[in-house]
Computed example of a mutant assay.
Amino acid sequence: MQSSNELKCLYFSLGVIKQATREFSDQNLLGEDGFGDIYRGNISINDYDYVVAVKRFHKESEIMFRYEIDRLSPFHHRNIISLLGYCEEEYEKILVYELLPNGSLYDYLLSGKHRVRNLTVAKRLEICIETANGLSYLHFGTRFIHGDVNTCNIFLDDNLVAKLLAPPFTSCLRGLIASPKQESDNLCYHSLTNKQIIDKNTQR
């Protein structure tokens, strides 16, 4: 394992990745996103054990691998999900992200296994503020527009701190940023009330 100063993330050998995912075991498979399969793994970094998401790209998705690693490796903020490192060896192209144990905010709020652990109003406000901090870092600190803020892209760590997933399908900021007030109001309303948002423009 070595650091890449240019990419600002770690390089993992294929051996480390295989050990972390138990040779890409089906039992470790979390799903896929259209560009590759995603596995759960455990990797030690600086004597700390991380639970990670290992994205193994399909052979035809090399361009997206390059795009994700170049675009996402500079992002370092407590409210942004981190790209921890990558592997490019023996025709394998792999990215390693931190994996958050409590899943997405959507799952935490709405799935049956979490309904018994409802978030307090104060905690939901904290999540909204933490999400806004992550967005502020992306939009103003890195000039990177997120473009897809919803409860499926907000994740909670083991301390219920919100971390925003920065998707590759966003655009670089050129010119002025449009006011995000309406989206922020909708996000806060959804998180605070647990109710679906109804677009009044679709109602006749």
Rank of each mutant, 00 (worst) to 15 (best):
E92S: 09
N28H: 07
E90F: 10
S104M: 01
V16G: 06
L10S: 05
R174W: 06
H114T: 01
Q27C: 04
V161M: 07
Y91L: 08
P180H: 10
L176F: 11
L95E: 05
T151C: 03
L125H: 15
G141L: 06
S104Q: 00
F57P: 08
L187T: 02
T170W: 02
K163L: 07
P180L: 02
L7I: 01
L164F: 01
Y137C: 06
S82F: 08
V161Q: 13
P168Q: 04
N201I: 02
P101W: 03
I198L: 11
I81M: 14
I17D: 10
Y91E: 15
G85V: 11
I154C: 01
T202C: 03
L192M: 15
L125R: 11
K93S: 03
I145R: 10
F140R: 15
G134A: 04
L187A: 06
Y108I: 00
F65H: 02
Y97W: 14
P167K: 02
Q19V: 09
A53K: 13
H146L: 02
L125V: 15
P167N: 07
L99V: 00
L10T: 07
A132W: 09
E130K: 07
L192W: 07
D37R: 14
S104G: 01
I80P: 07
Y91F: 14
K195Y: 13
G134I: 04
T193R: 09
R22G: 07
S3R: 13
N201K: 11
E32L: 03
E126G: 03
H77A: 05
L156P: 00
Q196A: 12
R124F: 11
R204W: 06
R117N: 12
L164Q: 08
H76L: 10
G112A: 13
